[in-house]
């Protein structure tokens, strides 16, 4: 019972927190120069990791799907099937997991440390709103960075698949040529929507958990741990919900299943 209450309190708090940030954004309170600074801190520094991860995710998917296709003698479909599966599901989820570990953990740890060392209280007492001054730039920086990194990562998954195809003897041009025959605009749209939503989730969860951390260094540790677990759970949950919604909409509009 206590656990359910805590869960409701946490998600209720996150919704109110997001609404407050949204209202302040509409009131034009976002300091965009700080957003750019934060994009460099959390985004640019994660680019190398995202590119590497994307390449390997693409290659792993190509390996797995190639193994299945060989049984049916359908290797010609490798490019399309591998790219579709990666774009629609595995790519956004895996890269979002990595970003929640790097960007999310960094942000929540930074904010939690500011909280337990009274920096946030100092801002309050000096007449500023910490959400406006500290949180808004970070939220937008994480949303923008995560979204762009996910898009870059997904493009890298395609390159990873192509590179692996070359290694196993599938012509790269054939691999790429096969992609548009299976990957539809719907798949790309779903991938973009998932990337944006995962970016928002990582931003809100990491800022919320960091901002409300209490209790010294133990509190910072607990905030980062809770941020990681919540991010992972929510990414999986929303991936499931979006996949279900996409499947239902595809049924409704009869736009194919890949």
């Amino acid at each position: 019972m206590e656990a359910s209450r805590k869960l409701v309190r946490t998600f209720g708090g996150m919704i109110l927190f997001s609404l407050e940030c949204l209202v302040l954004t509409f009131q034009n309170k976002t300091k965009w120069n700080q957003v750019v600074e934060q994009i460099f801190q959390v985004g640019v520094r994660s680019l190398g990791m995202t590119i590497t991860a994307g390449l390997f995710v693409g290659a792993i998917m190509a390996i797995q799907i190639d193994l299945q296709l060989k049984d049916f003698g359908a290797e010609a479909f490798l490019g399309g099937l591998s790219t579709s599966a990666t774009l629609r599901n595995v790519g956004p989820v895996l890269i979002a997991f990595l970003l929640s570990g790097k960007v999310g953990a960094y942000t929540s740890a930074e904010l939690a440390t500011m909280g337990v060392t009274e920096q946030l209280n100092a801002i309050r007492l000096l007449g500023a709103n910490p959400i406006e001054y500290i949180i808004l730039p970070r939220i937008w920086a994480v949303v923008i960075s995560s979204f762009l990194l996910l898009i870059v990562g997904l493009m890298m998954t395609i390159f990873g698949g192509v590179m692996f195809a070359e290694i196993i003897g599938v012509n790269a041009l054939n691999y790429i040529y096969n992609i548009p025959s299976i990957v539809t605009g719907w798949s790309i749209a779903l991938s973009v929507v998932k990337s944006f939503l995962f970016g928002v989730l990582i931003a809100v969860v990491s800022c919320y958990k960091g901002y409300y951390a209490r209790g010294g260094s133990v509190g910072v540790g607990a905030a980062v741990q809770s941020c990681s677990v919540t991010n992972l759970m929510l990414i999986i949950l929303f991936d499931f919900l979006l996949s279900m919604a996409s499947s239902t909409l595809q049924d409704l509009f009869n736009v194919g299943y890949l």
Binding site: M114, T117, E118, Q119, N121, A122, I123, L125
Partner: peptide, 16 residues
């Protein structure tokens, strides 16, 4: 009230 008061925290609490 906060405009009238100045609190020096136990730790410096400077913005890093």
């Amino acid at each position: 009230i906060r405009k009238q008061c100045g609190l020096v925290f136990q730790f410096p609490a400077l913005l890093d």
